[in-house]
Simulated assay, not measured.
Amino acid sequence: MTLQSELTTATLAQDFAVIPVLDLKDGLVVHARAGKHAHAGKRAEYRPIATPFGPPHDGAAIARALLGITFSPALYIADLDAILGRGRNLDMCRHLGQALPGTELWIDAGFAQVGDCAAWLPLGATLVVGSETIADLAAWEDLRAAFGQNVVLSLDFDEQGLRGPERLLADPALWPKRVILMSLGRVGTETGPDVARLEETLQRADGREVYVAGGVAGLDDLAAVEKRGARGALAATALHSGALGQKEIAALVRERRSQV
């Protein structure tokens, strides 16, 4: 059995998704430096990505390679210019959607209210709403009511705790079906995900799909969060560095299948 057929047969996408991340800035794919993230500020430190998967101006080539490694049903796109409020990479995202038929685009473009989303709706994308961009609960309820299951809530954490309305964290009834635990200080560090926060969140998630983001370094991290019940993990640095590849993901599939 080939690696590709093994992954396909195991239906990785239906069980545990390793979702690759693209950060876009000034029409290029850029990369978060250790300890920095699009939501965390320090955008000047983002540089065009250096990766074996393609040049920074060819987001489609890079995305295809990452999706080929992970067999993910989705691609997470952070439009840093939109988050900064200085423009947007809408044309590039439109091109990615056309180049990647069948891939669900999760787009984080600094959505704060329903009106921010209009230009993105023709892409058929899933909207990722970061807690740090939510001004108040009324704005969040409007977004959730308008877009239903096409919204993913990213609970954004820094060293001080949640960025955004505290009630969003305190009351899981406010969460949509899919929630991301975004550890901003771990993005780009490969220091491991926040397993303790994941465990605490899953105890209150009431069947919601919980994803982790920030710090994923390799197979052990994926296995740790999958074992605890996470629905998936977002990854970038480990994929570009080669620390996490097809073989590692296939190993996770084999391990899970052996336990069934």
Rank of each mutant, 00 (worst) to 15 (best):
V21A: 06
R228M: 08
L80Y: 01
D58L: 00
L252F: 10
L75W: 00
G232K: 05
G164W: 02
E45Q: 12
P73R: 10
V114E: 08
W106T: 01
D220H: 11
F53I: 13
P165Q: 06
A10E: 09
A145M: 11
L155Y: 03
G229T: 09
L143V: 09
G185K: 03
I49M: 07
L105G: 00
V179R: 05
G148I: 03
A74S: 14
V216W: 03
R178Q: 10
A196V: 15
R167A: 14
D142T: 15
R257G: 14
A217D: 10
A217F: 00
V18F: 09
G68N: 12
P20E: 02
Y46A: 04
R88G: 10
S241Q: 10
R197I: 05
S241R: 09
S131H: 07
E200F: 12
R197G: 04
L12W: 01
R94V: 10
L123D: 00
A235C: 11
R43W: 08
S72G: 11
L252V: 01
S241A: 11
L75M: 08
G218V: 08
L7A: 09
R94G: 07
F111C: 03
W175D: 00
G245F: 00
L75E: 08
A146D: 04
Q113G: 13
L244E: 04
G229Q: 01
M1I: 12
I249P: 02
D81K: 09
G97E: 01
T189Y: 03
L67S: 07
A10C: 14
A112G: 12
L84Y: 10
M92S: 08
G85L: 06
F71A: 13
A230I: 02
E226N: 08
W175K: 06
P176I: 07
N89T: 04
C93F: 05
G124D: 09
T11W: 13
L123C: 10
F111G: 04
R231P: 06
A250V: 12
M92E: 11
A224Y: 04
A224L: 07
G245R: 06
V187K: 01
L123T: 03
A235N: 01
A44L: 12
G164I: 00
A78W: 05
L90Q: 12
L75G: 03
Q98A: 14
Q149H: 09
L67Q: 08
A10R: 07
V210Q: 07
A173H: 14
L153Y: 01
L28E: 05
E166R: 15
T201R: 04
T126V: 15
L239I: 06
D158Y: 14
I62Q: 01
W106A: 00
D136W: 08
Y211H: 00
L100P: 06
L184F: 11
Q160N: 15
V216I: 15
R231F: 09
H31R: 15
E159Q: 15
K247P: 13
R204A: 10
A74V: 06
L24I: 07
E248A: 10
L105T: 07
F147A: 05
R197V: 11
D136S: 13
G110A: 04
L121R: 14
L121F: 08
A139Y: 02
D91T: 14
T189S: 12
R228A: 06
L12A: 05
I69H: 02
A44R: 11
A217T: 04
A236P: 09
